[in-house]
Design a protein around this nucleic acid. Structure first.
Length: 202
DNA sequence: GTCCCGATTCCCT
DNA sequence: GGGAATCGGGACC
C-alpha cells in the first residue's frame, strides 16, 4: 500500500451507523491485489431501531456478522445476483457502501465488470462496487481493520466532505422517511441523484 | 414446505 | 420509464 494510507482503528467503527456513515465518505476501500475505490456514497442501517435493516428482527445466520465485533465486512446477497458491502458497527448495525470512485487497479475492475463501458459505471452502485472489487460471500466477516482477508478500509488523509448531501435511502420500502443516505456533493460516481436530497449544514 | 419479495442492475422502449 | 433476471431469507401455514 502507498505510504500515507493508514487503516482506521477499531473504535472508529464502534458508534451509531448514522455517525459512522458520513465519516466513511472519502475513505478508501482497498484490495490486496491493488484495486481501490474512494467511498462516495453510504447508507446507515440501525438494526433493531430500523425496520429497513437486515438486523431489525435480531440475529440470524445471514446477518450474524453485523452482530459481531465492529470493523468487519458484512456481505449480503440480493435479487438473486448481487452482493452488497457493509462496514459493521456491532449490535446488528452497519453502513452500506453504495458507491465508489475507482482510483487504482482499474484494469482489474474492468475485467471484473466487462459490462461497464465507462469508469463511471464501475462502482456507482452497491452491486457494481462489490463486483468491481471482487467481493462475494467468501469475504463476509473480513476484518477491515487488519485486512486479514485481503480487503481493508484506509484513510489517505482526505477528510469527509464538510457538507455532504443527505436524503432518503434507496431501494427500500420501510422507514423511507429516514434521511440516512449520505454522498459527496456533485460527485459523478454517486449511484442516483435523489430529488429529495438536500445539502446538509453540518 | 411454500410463498413472497428484496439495501439491484441492465436492456429495451 | 418499465420489466426481466434470479435465488435465498424469513414469515407464515
Amino acid at each position: 500500500m502507498p505510504d500515507g494510507w493508514a487503516p482506521l482503528p477499531r473504535e472508529f467503527y464502534q458508534r451509531h451507523p448514522t455517525l459512522l456513515a458520513p465519516e466513511l465518505l472519502n475513505k478508501l476501500l482497498v484490495r490486496s491485489d491493488g484495486r481501490a475505490v474512494r467511498i462516495v456514497e453510504v447508507e446507515a442501517y440501525a438494526g433493531h431501531e430500523d425496520p429497513a435493516a437486515h438486523g431489525y428482527r435480531g440475529r440470524t445466520a445471514r446477518n450474524a456478522t453485523m452482530f459481531g465485533p465492529p470493523g468487519h465486512l458484512y456481505v449480503y446477497f440480493i435479487y438473486g445476483m448481487h452482493w452488497g458491502c457493509n462496514a459493521v458497527c456491532g449490535n446488528g448495525m452497519g453502513v452500506l457502501l453504495r458507491a465508489g470512485e475507482p482510483i487504482a487497479g482499474i484494469e482489474a475492475m474492468m475485467a471484473a465488470r466487462p459490462v461497464a463501458r465507462r469508469h463511471q459505471d464501475l462502482a456507482s452502485g452497491p452491486g457494481k462496487l462489490s463486483q468491481a472489487m471482487g467481493v462475494n460471500r467468501s469475504m463476509d466477516g473480513a476484518d477491515l481493520v487488519t485486512g486479514d482477508r485481503g480487503i481493508i478500509i484506509v484513510s489517505d488523509g482526505t477528510p469527509p466532505p464538510s457538507a455532504p448531501v443527505t436524503g432518503p435511502r434507496i431501494g427500500i420500502s420501510k422507514a423511507t422517511d429516514f434521511p440516512w443516505r449520505w454522498h459527496v456533493p456533485d460527485h459523478p460516481h454517486v449511484s442516483v441523484r435523489s430529488k429529495k436530497a438536500k445539502e446538509s449544514l453540518t
